[in-house]
Amino acid sequence: MESHKTALILIGYQNDYFSPNGILYGVIEESSKVTNVIANTVHLLQCLASTAALIITTPIFFTSNYEELIDPIGILNTIKEVNAFQMGTPGSETIEELYPFKDRIMEVPGKRGFNAFINTNLDEILKEKRITDVVLAGAVTSICIDSTGRSAHEKGYRVIILSDCTSARTVFEQGFYCSSIFPLYAEVMTHTELLSHLASSVPV
């Protein structure tokens, strides 16, 4: 892997998921604690900050009346019912642990559902930067990570999903997706394994 051809896509690193006061914190709390997602992500960002890797965040935002959601079902309906990710609210903001890297992270707006490629210009940015390897981190493992990962694979990118930087609804779900679902279209590794792959491509 080469850092200048690699993009780290951060999905869902917002207070409503990852802050103890977040509306949906309980949805992923158990899995997040087990995988130590925030600490691992911060370490990854610290290591990538000085490289040529592209770092992107794709936050999800909704207006106060959720007019963007037409007949939502499942988790999107839940988001609407509990008023999560409303634009301009503390819950929709990026978690403070990522603040030190804000000048290094490119925000790609427009995400309104599971797939970070839909309603955004993410694919155009990746192609413009000549990215070949897409690395996914964030939440929720079985929903946004899986949906975005499949889409990236179908668009021709090599997909890497970080097992210790993703959060599912349960520990079982996290393990099941990492062992049985993601390997069908992606490589699964820890953030330290990713860093090792990137380091091995740097000429000595």
Rank of each mutant, 00 (worst) to 15 (best):
V135C: 04
K155Q: 13
F101L: 11
D146C: 01
D164G: 02
V140Y: 00
A137T: 05
I105P: 04
P109Y: 12
N121T: 11
I105R: 10
C144W: 00
A139H: 03
A137L: 01
T132Q: 15
D133G: 03
I105C: 01
E107R: 15
L162K: 00
Y157L: 08
L136K: 04
S151N: 15
T141Q: 08
C144S: 14
L122F: 08
V135T: 04
S151T: 15
L126Y: 02
M106Q: 14
K127N: 11
G113K: 13
I160D: 01
D164R: 05
E107N: 10
R158Q: 14
N119R: 15
K129S: 11
E154T: 09
I125Q: 05
S163V: 10
E107K: 12
A137S: 14
V135P: 02
I145V: 13
E107D: 12
E128W: 07
D164N: 12
L136I: 10
E107Q: 15
T132H: 14
D103F: 11
R158K: 15
L136M: 10
D164A: 08
D146F: 00
R130T: 12
F117L: 12
V140P: 01
V134L: 14
T120D: 11
K111D: 06
D133I: 03
D103A: 13
A116Q: 08
I131M: 07
E124W: 07
I160K: 07
V140F: 06
G138E: 00
S163W: 02
G110Q: 11
L122W: 02
G110D: 12
S151H: 11
L126V: 01
A137W: 00
D133N: 14
A152P: 07
T141F: 08
A139C: 10
K102N: 15
I125M: 09
R150Y: 04
S147H: 00
C144F: 00
A137P: 04
L136C: 05
N119C: 08
Y157A: 09
T120Y: 11
F101K: 07
I131W: 00
E128P: 01
I125W: 01
S142V: 05
T132L: 10
Y157G: 06
M106A: 12
F101N: 04
I125C: 02
K111E: 09
A137C: 05
I125V: 15
I118A: 10
D123F: 04
F117T: 05
N121R: 12
K102I: 14
G156M: 09
L126E: 07
R158W: 09
I105T: 03
V159K: 06
I125F: 03
P109R: 14
R150L: 04
I118P: 02
I161G: 06
I143F: 08
G149T: 06
I105Y: 01
D146G: 04
G156Y: 06
R150P: 02
V159N: 02
C144Q: 04
G113H: 14
I160W: 02
V135S: 01
I143P: 00
